[in-house]
């Protein structure tokens, strides 16, 4: 009974992979000792990914395995990356809406005042938007009041 999925990986290949893994381990230690600055992390991760790929492809024999198993593993890895990336979208930019200095507040107040003044130039007919506004117009109320109408009774 011979199945192509039961590929026997030669001893030599396994030994070579093991050797490469050891070399990479030494390499990552050396790289960490070098003053790489901001490159420290990417280099370490790159080497780790290389090691992981060797383990997955040869020791775990994914290279010789059915494609569905590779697909499974790739999808799993993809979602780990998504998890980390999207969380960092938040944590790396946390507080980007935090700019509420007095200057910002002043500016907003000024814009609001301006807008309020502009509204004074319009007639109630021009300001009406909803059916309720038109009803209010007929009852001779100010259109702008309808938005407060339904909260009024609770106060």
């Amino acid at each position: 009974m011979s199945h192509d999925s039961h590929h026997i990986i030669p001893f030599k290949t396994l030994a070579t992979v093991f050797g490469a893994l050891i070399v990479l381990t030494v390499l990552t230690v050396v790289a960490a000792a070098l003053p790489l600055g901001p490159l420290d992390m990417p280099v370490a991760i790159l080497i780790a990914v290389a090691k992981a790929s060797l383990v997955v492809l040869y020791f775990m024999a994914l290279k010789y395995d059915k494609p569905v198993n590779s697909l499974t593993f790739s999808v799993g890895t993809l979602f780990v990356v998504i998890f980390i990336t999207f969380t960092l979208f938040d944590t790396a930019f946390r507080g980007d809406l935090g700019d509420v200095s007095s200057q910002t507040v002043d500016e907003i107040t000024r814009q609001e005042t301006e807008a309020g003044e502009r509204q004074q130039q319009f007639t109630p007919e021009q300001m009406a938007v909803s059916p309720a506004d038109y009803e209010a117009l007929q009852n001779n109320e100010s259109a702008a009041d309808t938005t407060t109408a339904d909260t009024a009774d609770t106060e």
Binding site: F79, I82, F86, F89, D90, T91, A92, F93, R94, G95, D96, L97
Partner: peptide
């Protein structure tokens, strides 16, 4: 469905950029 979880956190104080993406 894995890319939208942050829509539950719009007012939780996550960053505005991630709120927009989500």
């Amino acid at each position: 469905g894995f890319l939208v979880w942050g829509h539950h956190m719009f007012v939780s104080g996550q960053s505005a950029i991630s709120s927009i993406i989500f």
